[in-house]
Computed example of a mutant assay.
Amino acid sequence: MLSMYPACFYREDDGYSVIFPDLNYLATQGDTLEDAMEMAVECLAAHLHSCKADGEAVPAPSSLTDIDPVAVSKEVSPDEPVGEAFVNIVSVDVEAYAKAHFEKSVRKTLTIPAWLNTAALEQGINFSQTLQEALLSKVQAK
């Protein structure tokens, strides 16, 4: 399912800043407009994916015409001058993006003693699952 939210894009000396006013002023940036758009898609996907995983409600997107990029800029940085700014819809299929970027498995090669390999195979132990469980317990313990 496609999720679409308006985002304010601001031209700056070193690229573009992007702010999603509907999502508590969630922000990102990019060196070029293309980079900023890619970062906006990633930022939106990550935020919505995280909200879903945590069971948090997500506000409905505003209409594109209801967003004033100058007003948003003044809310975020009241003393900063506002240069070139525009509003654009950023869209992403969160589920597809998450599968491709957040939940993608990577292959790892490891070495274990031969006796341990034999014993694990005899017991029908799933090596990938066991390694994932062990790594998760290590990561969560820190």
Rank of each mutant, 00 (worst) to 15 (best):
L26E: 05
D35E: 08
S63E: 07
V87E: 02
S50W: 13
V82A: 07
E38Q: 13
Q129N: 04
N126D: 15
E133V: 04
A141S: 15
A96H: 10
L135C: 11
A98C: 02
D22Q: 08
F127I: 07
K142H: 15
S63Y: 03
G55Y: 04
H101Y: 10
A45F: 12
Q132S: 10
A7I: 02
L48A: 02
C43W: 01
K108V: 13
Q132I: 12
A60G: 04
P59Y: 11
S3A: 14
V82P: 04
L33D: 01
S137Q: 15
V41M: 13
P69C: 10
S50P: 00
V106N: 12
K142G: 00
E38G: 10
P69S: 13
C51E: 12
G124I: 09
V58R: 05
V58L: 04
S128I: 10
Q29W: 06
Q29D: 07
D54H: 13
W115F: 00
D66Y: 02
D54V: 00
I89T: 07
L135A: 15
T28K: 09
H47Q: 11
S105I: 01
Y5Q: 11
D93A: 04
F20E: 02
V87A: 03
R11E: 15
G15C: 10
E42Y: 09
S17C: 06
L135T: 09
F20M: 08
L48E: 09
K99T: 01
M39A: 14
A141P: 03
P6G: 06
S105G: 06
Q129E: 14
H47L: 04
L136Y: 07
T28Y: 08
L121P: 00
T32P: 00
A119Q: 13
G55A: 04
V92W: 11
L33F: 04
Y5G: 03
R107D: 11
T130I: 03
G83M: 15
N88K: 14
V90M: 12
G30M: 09
L33H: 02
T118D: 14
H47G: 01
V76Y: 12
L110M: 14
Q140D: 15
A100S: 11
T65W: 09
E42F: 01
L116W: 01
T109E: 10
P21L: 09
P78T: 03
C51D: 06
N24E: 15
T111I: 08
S63N: 05
M1C: 02
D13M: 02
G15P: 06
E95T: 13
S91Q: 15
E80C: 11
A71S: 01
T109I: 07
R11S: 14
E42H: 13
M37D: 05
F9M: 08
M4G: 05
M4W: 00
M4D: 11
K99I: 01
P69M: 12
L131V: 15
Q129R: 15
Y10N: 03
P59I: 12
I112N: 03
Q129M: 05
G83S: 14
Y10I: 04
I112V: 11
F127A: 01
T65Q: 13
S50K: 14
G55W: 05
